[in-house]
Structures are given as structure tokens and as C-alpha cells.
Write a protein that binds this DNA or RNA. Structure first.
Length: 477
DNA sequence: ATGTGC
């Protein structure tokens, strides 16, 4: 049974739905039909106080009572925290999510970046400063998702001349797709961090995390080679054209488990939040839960950095070249920063840190420009910028609307060789990166422009997992 | 962005 149906039946969103799903599972196991289950849920919703001791539905009944009482006591704030947007090419729902986030009692200020689109709780491209509280879903599911660019001592024509070697390096030295691992795993001292032992959710996933070190994952993640046109002296290598390698990856499966674990915990601690705020449940920074999340989040930060470090090290070693310069940054993370003289927690969910003088990387798409940028320290913009061009449509919509014939035409025109990737990631599915950059001229300065030439991404998710299953089934036979 | 239980 889906969450939407449970809400139709009157189950409160968030922990109400969580509790209901538990009951549904139990009832279905004991052989009840969907109709029986729906009747039972209606009865609980109608009179939860009568059913708090019920064997199957007691937890749902108690949760509804708790949520109802807490929400009755909750009163929103009189005035939302101030926020501004950069650009005007947004879905109304993304703007609404930003506005809702600023109504949280803990919110201090917000900023919506020009690549923003709808996400869980806070939009992707949303920045939120809070007072002594951290919101797991305002950091994002892929905690510490990160960009890393290395300038290599190759010549621009080498991208074509040594194309086969570059492809081989990508194929052998990282992995793509949901659930991908290295066997045997890559080695890195980040795996010896004491936090893996101290925090149960980390201990549980330590093994998987070890196997996923150095992998790139799926979705919009990629590793690519391209031409970097350096426009300023910031990188310390002089102006001109260079070959660079750019990777986009994060904390893989472990980060997701951490995000979901603490978000569920935060929701349990905040039954008072109305439905539209329920995905924005927070943890107090002074509470044991908040401190533990922060510790886990920071480890995910070091883990993600190690991930990129290994990808670059192994690819560079494979090619036998040298690294001349580099830039890297998280774009799903939270930081303790000063805002207008006050210490706040700044959540950047799909947003690049852009404190004055700080360098960052903003990718476009597989066949449009990316940028190395220098922050301008715009205080109203919460020292942030976009983390890319931003999706112009959903993945499903992109798969429906475009064909590979069109996409290949685009790639050919831009001289991009796509080793693998999904139709849901084609450039036409993204907003215009030039317009996005123009909308944030007061947030960042352009330091270099990057043109992708040789790109590897995960092949389209659903297809590959179906094929994997079919292969496994064939093996069994 | 990510897998997991059927």
C-alpha cells in the first residue's frame, strides 16, 4: 500500500504513515485482503483512542493520538524567516518548499539558487540557515555529494589521440551504477576512523562502505575528461587551455542509510510538525541525536572526499600523468557559519559554498559547460551558488520526450564521446547553464570554463537492474 | 541518489 493511499484514508503524514505501513505489513502477512486492511485503518483513524492496545494497529493508534495532540499544540511562527531567490525559472512547488522551510521555528534565513527544483523537504538548490539545529533532509540523501576537478599535464589533442586509454582508465579505475562495488575493495585510512565503531548505523554499513570506496554510483554522477579554459590566476597555473578530469560522486549507499536513519529519528522527535513541514524535522545540535548525526555527517564528508581522491589517484596512475592543480567541494552538506554576526547552521542541499574567495565547481551536463567559480561572499545568498544547471524535467519525462537520435546529434555537435549514460541525463533534460550562471553573477565569479569531451555515467538505472536480475535468474537455472 | 524484498 502506498503512502498517498494511506493519507487519503486519513493517516497523518510522516510518522503516521510509517506506523501504518508497519501495521499493513503485519496484517497482509496474516492473510488479510487490501479491503480488510483499509477498513481497519479507517476504524483506527476514526477512533484511535479505542485501539491503542490493538495487537496489529496499536502502534498506529498511539501514533495518531500523539501526532494529533502535538499538532494541536503547535502554532506556526507569525513571520517566516527572510529568503530570496536567484533567477526566475522555477516550478511553483520548489518556491513553495523554500517558503515552507522558512516557516520552521528554527529557520533564520533562506536562499533559493537558480538551478532549484523540488526535493524531499527542502528543494534541491535550497539553502537554509537555522539556529542550533540540523535538518537531515536539508542536507540531502546523498550526504557530502561532491565535485572534484584535477588539471592534468596532458595536451588537449590527447583527449582524441588517446581516447581508448582514457576510456580504459574510466572502465577499470572506478565503477558506475546503483549498488556498484570494488572486489577487492580500495584502501583508504578513512575506513579506520573511530566513528565507524562508535555509531551503530555506521558500524552496520562499514563493510559496504569499504567496498564502495572509489566508486561513482548512479543518477547524475559521472567522471569525465574535458577542456578547461582557465580565465584567471586563481588556480595557480596561468591562463590558457588544459585537459582536466571532473568527477561527481558522494557517500554512496552509506550516506543514504545515514540520512534516512536520522531523518526518521528527527520525525519521531517532532510529531508536532504539520504535513507540509514533516520532511523538515530537525535535531537539536545540543541533543545526543543531533551530535551523533553531525559526527556521522562529517564522517560522510571525509568518506566522500576519500572516494573522489581514490577515483582521481587510480585514473591518474593508470594514465601515468601528473596533476597540475585541483578544486573540490561538497554541495550536499551543513556547515557552522556566521550569518550577520550570529552563528548558524547553513544547510546547502544542492548548492555550492561561495564564501568570499572560495573556489568551487559547478558542472553543466554531459555536453554543456561546467565552471570553476570563486565565491563573492554574498550574505543574502548565504554565501552559496547553484550546484549545476538543474533538471528542467523529471527523469521519467526526459525518457519519454527524447530519443537517442536527438541526444547523439547534440553530443556530436559538442564533440562529446559518451562512454555510457542514461537518456534521463541528456543535456536537453537540464536548464540552460548559461542562464543559470547569468542569474548568479552576484554570487560567484567565473574562474574557468570546462567543456566535457569524454563522459562516463551509469547506464539508465531501471534497464540495467532488470538485466542484472535476468542474468542472475539465468545463472540459477 | 540508492537497492531490497518479493
Amino acid at each position: 500500500m502506498k503512502a498517498a493511499r494511506l493519507k487519503e484514508l486519513g493517516v497523518p503524514a510522516g510518522i503516521g504513515v510509517d506506523a501504518a505501513l508497519g501495521g499493513v505489513k503485519q496484517a497482509m502477512k496474516s492473510g488479510q485482503t487490501v479491503e480488510d486492511v483499509e477498513q481497519a485503518i479507517l476504524a483506527v483513524v476514526d477512533a484511535p483512542k479505542l485501539l491503542t492496545e490493538d495487537e496489529v494497529w496499536g502502534n498506529l493508534a498511539r501514533t495518531i493520538v500523539r501526532v494529533t495532540e502535538a499538532r494541536a499544540r503547535f502554532s506556526g511562527r507569525d513571520e517566516a524567516a527572510p529568503w530570496q531567490q536567484w533567477g526566475d525559472n522555477f516550478e511553483p512547488a520548489a518556491i513553495d518548499q523554500m517558503a515552507q522551510a522558512c516557516k520552521l521555528p528554527i529557520s533564520v534565513a533562506g536562499a533559493l539558487m537558480p538551478d532549484a527544483h523540488v526535493g524531499y523537504g527542502l528543494p534541491i538548490g535550497g539553502v537554509l540557515a537555522t539556529d542550533n539545529a540540523v535538518i537531515p533532509y536539508a542536507v540531502g540523501v546523498d550526504i557530502a555529494c561532491r565535485m572534484k576537478l584535477s588539471v592534468l599535464d596532458l595536451l588537449v589533442p590527447d583527449i582524441v589521440a588517446y581516447q581508448e586509454d582514457l576510456i580504459e582508465a574510466l572502465e577499470k579505475e572506478t565503477r558506475f551504477g546503483t549498488g556498484c562495488t570494488f572486489k577487492p575493495g580500495r584502501q583508504h585510512e578513512v575506513m579506520d576512523d573511530p566513528a565507524w565503531e562508535e555509531i551503530p548505523i555506521l558500524r552496520k554499513h562499514h563493510n559496504k562502505a569499504a567496498k564502495q570506496l572509489g566508486t561513482s554510483g548512479g543518477g547524475n554522477h559521472f567522471v569525465e575528461f574535458g577542456v578547461l579554459e582557465v580565465l584567471s590566476e586563481d588556480l595557480g597555473i596561468g591562463r590558457g587551455k588544459y585537459v582536466a578530469m571532473l568527477s561527481h560522486s558522494g557517500s554512496r549507499g552509506t550516506g543514504e542509510k545515514v540520512a534516512k536513519h536520522y531523518s526518521a529519528l528527527a520525525r519521531q522527535l517532532h510529531p508536532e510538525l504539520p504535513e507540509e513541514l514533516s520532511h523538515l524535522a530537525w535535531l537539536d545540535m545540543d541533543s545526543p541525536e543531533g551530535r551523533e548525526y553531525w559526527q556521522a555527517m562529517e564522517l560522510m564528508g571525509r568518506y566522500s572526499a576519500a572516494n573522489h581522491e581514490l577515483i582521481h589517484k587510480h585514473v591518474v596512475d593508470h594514465l601515468g600523468c601528473e596533476v597540475l592543480a585541483g578544486v573540490e567541494n561538497h554541495h550536499n552538506f551543513a556547515w557552522k557559519e556566521a550569518h550577520k554576526g550570529r552563528e548558524v547552521v547553513v544547510h546547502r542541499k544542492g548548492a555550492t559554498p561561495a564564501t568570499n574567495g572560495v573556489l568551487g565547481v559547478i558542472p553543466g551536463s554531459m555536453a554543456t559547460s561546467g565552471f570553476v567559480v570563486r565565491g563573492k561572499g554574498n550574505e543574502e545568498g548565504l554565501n552559496s551558488a547553484s550546484h549545476g544547471a538543474g533538471r528542467a524535467m523529471s527523469r521519467v519525462e526526459a525518457e519519454r520526450r527524447f530519443t537517442w537520435a536527438e541526444a547523439n546529434e547534440f553530443l556530436k555537435k559538442k564533440k562529446v564521446h559518451l562512454v555510457s549514460g542514461g537518456l534521463d541525463e541528456v543535456p536537453m533534460a537540464y536548464k540552460d547553464i548559461e542562464a543559470v550562471m547569468a542569474a548568479q553573477e552576484d554570487l560567484v565569479e567565473q574562474v574557468a570554463r570546462f567543456e566535457p569531451r569524454l563522459v562516463k555515467m551509469a547506464p539508465s538505472g531501471k534497464v540495467s537492474s532488470r538485466r542484472r536480475k535476468e542474468r542472475q535468474q539465468r545463472k540459477r537455472k
